[in-house]
Nucleic acid binder design. Structure first.
Lengths: 194, 194
DNA sequence: CCTACCGATCGGTAGG
DNA sequence: CCTACCGATCGGTAGG
């Protein structure tokens, strides 16, 4: 059970790739079966249905972001460095696991309740925690006084689509990518000498 | 033909709304027919098929962005003001027409060739024009020296998802929204006193 | 893990 | 603009 990648894991990874390329709805169980060299009916020996796959991808990533957030919250650093760490977290997840992150970003709305509501709650929790850090940074005089909602979504959106256009093989290294995005976003918050 | 909104226009608007809420693939012609009080077969008296609707939405918006870009390019203003005008353009389109803009942003990949290739070309053209303005701003000493690709996509992404979270009825007015986003993004490019 | 198959639904057409 | 209907494909199950 630990020997090699389990068949279930293989299925989940192939599904994430198909969901990214064609979307959840446009990916059929037969497409997925072909990708893992199985007949469609055999998939059901490993998973309970199509939506279980989507649920797994969505909640795995949601939990990853939240775990990263909670770890960063506990660090004894100022708010500027926390925002930097969060930008780093987003970029790291987006570049490390860019297949499943696309499905996570774009396909969660095809979840059914109660999972859909639970997913939205997790996302909202994450956003509120992020917003608190921005607010704390403003209160501490680290950032200029901006609307925290606008700042939050500007930052999240700016890093959200990295997987869409960042090709790791380009003239830009991952470190440069991160340094420049930090400079633009933190510079925008009025932090000097980012 | 000019008396009231044509039936075709009604269908296109209902489709944009359904595509936004459920996605292109998950919206059936029967869903759409119900929304405009018709039988599915009657839709084909107004449109040639499902994909024509998607094409119309995608290219209408692509042309709107490009027309705005070309108008801004011609203005006798500096690059800082051009970037401001482009941010204004994105925010304006996103808030004015936020239904079809969602379909435009998220569903274009379901186009088939040759329309898919044509759409990507239009988008690339827009991006290159935007990038040229950023580069010109750097050359003129208006912006700090950043990677133009990173700056371009950071800006585009940051304004791309406004329709996702901006509720016009909130405590933030559209002018405030725009002013604050400009401040964050242009501040990030090193422009003083935005 | 497969063959065989289910009812439901898809985009679209024929014909009036 | 409708009724009636087409072949294709969907997610999933029965049974071995």
């Amino acid at each position: 059970m630990e020997a090699s990648k389990s068949k279930k894991q293989t299925i989940l990874e192939a599904a994430a790739e198909l969901f990214r390329d064609r979307g959840y709805v446009a990916t059929s169980m037969r497409d997925l079966a072909d990708a893992v060299q199985l007949k469609a009916s055999s998939l059901y020996n490993h998973i309970s249905g199509k939506e279980e796959i989507l649920q797994t991808i969505c909640f795995q990533n949601a939990n990853r972001f939240l775990a990263g957030m909670k770890e960063i919250e506990k660090r004894p650093i100022n708010n500027t460095d926390k925002v930097k760490a969060l930008i780093h977290l987003h970029i790291q997840i987006a570049t490390e696991d860019f297949t499943s992150i696309t499905a996570f970003n774009d396909e969660w709305r095809h979840l059914s309740d109660p999972e859909l509501s639970r997913f939205k709650e997790l996302r909202r929790d994450y956003e509120l925690r992020f917003k608190s850090i921005i607010q704390a940074g403003i209160d501490a005089g680290e950032f200029v006084s901006v609307d925290t909602t606008i700042a939050l979504f500007t930052i999240i959106s700016a890093v959200r689509w990295i997987y869409d256009w960042f090709k790791p093989n380009r003239a830009i290294s991952m470190d440069q990518l991160e340094e420049q995005i930090e400079r633009i976003l933190l510079g925008g918050l009025g932090v000097k000498g980012v």
